[in-house]
Amino acid sequence: MKRTLIVLALSLSTATSAFAANPDVGGAPMFETKNIVENAVNSADHTTLVAAVQAAGLVETLQTPGPFTVFAPVNDAFAALPAGTVETLLKPENKDTLVKILTAHVVAGDISANQIRRNAGADGFYHMQAVSGDALSAQVRGNNIYIYDENGNAGKITISDVNQSNGVIHVVNKVLLPK
Rank of each mutant, 00 (worst) to 15 (best):
L81K: 08
G124W: 03
D134F: 06
I147Q: 00
M30G: 06
I111R: 06
N173G: 07
V7I: 13
L49Q: 04
V106T: 02
A108S: 15
R117Q: 09
V107Q: 11
V7P: 00
K179D: 14
N35K: 01
A154G: 12
M1E: 10
R141W: 02
V37W: 00
T16M: 14
N151C: 00
K2W: 10
V106L: 02
P82R: 08
L136A: 10
E87Q: 14
D149Q: 02
K34R: 14
G27E: 01
A122R: 03
N39R: 02
F125H: 00
M30V: 13
V175I: 04
A154D: 09
G27R: 05
L102I: 07
G109A: 06
A130I: 07
K174M: 12
Q129R: 14
T47I: 02
H46F: 11
L90D: 09
D161K: 02
A52H: 01
S11C: 15
E87T: 13
L10G: 07
N35R: 05
Y146A: 11
T64H: 08
V162A: 10
L5K: 06
G26E: 06
P178H: 04
D96T: 14
S160T: 14
V107I: 13
N163V: 14
Y126W: 06
T64N: 13
L58R: 02
A120P: 03
Q164H: 01
A77S: 01
K95Y: 04
L58D: 02
I101Y: 00
N166F: 04
M128W: 00
Q115R: 10
I36V: 11
V106D: 00
A113P: 04
A55G: 04
S11H: 03
Q115W: 07
T103W: 05
N166L: 12
F19D: 10
G109C: 07
V131T: 12
P82M: 13
V131Y: 02
K34E: 15
Y126I: 03
G27V: 04
Q63P: 11
N75Y: 09
V53R: 03
E60A: 15
E38M: 05
G155Q: 08
A113G: 07
P29R: 15
G84T: 09
I36T: 04
D149R: 01
A122F: 07
N39M: 02
A9R: 03
L89G: 02
N39G: 03
A113M: 03
N75S: 10
A113F: 01
N166A: 11
S165D: 12
H127M: 11
L12D: 01
Q115S: 13
F71H: 03
E60S: 15
N39E: 05
N166K: 10
K2E: 12
D134S: 15
K95A: 12
L81D: 11
V37Q: 00
F125W: 00
A108N: 13
E93M: 03
G109E: 05
I159A: 10
K156C: 04
D134M: 05
D123N: 14
A15S: 08
T158K: 08
L177F: 06
A154T: 04
Q54T: 15
